[in-house]
Design a binder for these strands. Structure first.
Lengths: 221, 221
DNA sequence: AAGCAAGAAATTGTCGATATTTCTTGAGAA
DNA sequence: TTCTCAAGAAATATCGACAATTTCTTGCTT
């Protein structure tokens, strides 16, 4: 996660394909053929292969020996596992961040929330706003970043990546839910240094989002 | 984790290098040159490169652009991060296993413990017994396997891999510590389905082991 | 003796091609 | 019609080689 500036072609292609998967441009289960990708990125097979190998190890793609690579598939079972895992690990990480985060962390959280609060979740015509996904992700990453434990942070962030896949395949926003208010409450608890409350709010936030995603995952194998 | 039967050469080499790192045959920080590895495994550079790429993504190696690969380095700071992370995540996973594990899980745990209890930690001349590491690892893996959550299990096992590196570089066994008794207590708590006790015992077990490893990590950068 | 610069050697990252394996298509038999 | 099987087509895994970059060596200057 977070290769500063990819000085190698394989690294650059890795990040681009990763983005395409997380943005939903490449659909879950879709085959990733070399011929397509070498053409699209104008690099050799070896470079594409290295990128896909890394994505597979990361869990965003699947490697089937002698059958190439596919985008990872969604399933209800996996969503439930993922949700339980995130509920525990993210709230633990957040709890530590609230306890240990310094002023720099606080300011980063406030800044990320400000951008998020200023970004509309849906565009004028009611469709999902692609920018909102990014700012939302950045806010949640900022919340966790203060935990002071790189190992734990890596785990938490890679779980968020996996969840982003499900999130992008849910078109609809639950109108009965005030997500902005949830974010505001999480922010307030963090700034008030109330670790227990913060952890509980984030845990509930994850649960609610996943519940909204279950119908989506149900359609998949 | 756990590629069933590697049908591809890259997969086979990946597992062999991984084993060598975990067994300590390849030292932390050591450079992993292609020339050496292609000769040793009689495969092409591409195959070695794929194996190293996967190991790097997994965290057992580090890729430095234009400078090749190295075995991951140990540090006191990382050991502390890793210990905190494992203490939380492994005990959580174990707690779920104690709650959810079925009879099949129980029997696997009992079997793994039986093998462990029958294996001497040190050989006759006082040196560490290589077999013991394996049986010990298998026992701990069996404990976690019943958690019923593949995502969480993957995280827990990959953290154990990282910790195995530190464990192998600690030659000495603390004589004032009865590790076998700790394992027995953990087993008993699991079979008694006492999730809280089981989680606490495992948490303490991890802490004690890591404390014994700190002097080792201290020597490294 | 220490520090630096230029050149040589070694090593990596990338490419194009070959060998294998899997998938597809179509003919023939039940 | 449906199933089986064989040949051809397509795609992957692996190889060997080249070009670019880094590292090491050597010799010079201060």
């Amino acid at each position: 996660m977070g290769t500063a500036t990819p000085t190698t072609r394989a690294g650059a292609v890795y990040e681009q394909i990763r983005d395409e998967i997380l943005r939903g441009a490449l659909q879950p289960g879709q085959r990733l053929r070399f011929a397509d990708l070498t053409g699209r990125y104008a690099v050799s097979q070896s470079v594409v292969r290295e990128a896909l190998t890394r994505l597979a190890e990361q869990g965003l793609a699947v490697a089937l020996p002698q059958q190439g690579f596919r985008v990872v598939t969604l399933s209800l079972r996996d969503l439930d596992d993922l949700t339980e895992t995130r509920r525990e690990i993210e709230s633990l990480t957040f709890r530590l961040a609230v306890r240990r985060g310094d002023v720099h962390w606080e300011s980063a959280v406030v800044a990320a929330h400000h951008v998020l609060a200023s970004t509309a979740a849906t565009t004028a015509d009611g469709a999902a706003n692609a920018d909102w996904f990014d700012t939302h992700e950045r806010f949640h990453q900022a919340l966790l970043a203060g935990c002071g434990n790189d190992r734990l942070l890596d785990v938490a962030l890679s779980l968020r990546d996996a969840a982003a896949l499900y999130r992008h395949w849910s078109g609809h926003h639950d109108p009965a839910r005030d997500v902005a208010a949830e974010h505001r409450a999480i922010l307030d608890a963090a700034l008030a240094r109330d670790a227990d409350l913060a952890a509980r709010l984030l845990s509930d936030h994850i649960d609610r989002t996943s519940a909204a995603l279950r119908p989506v995952a149900d359609g998949h194998p």
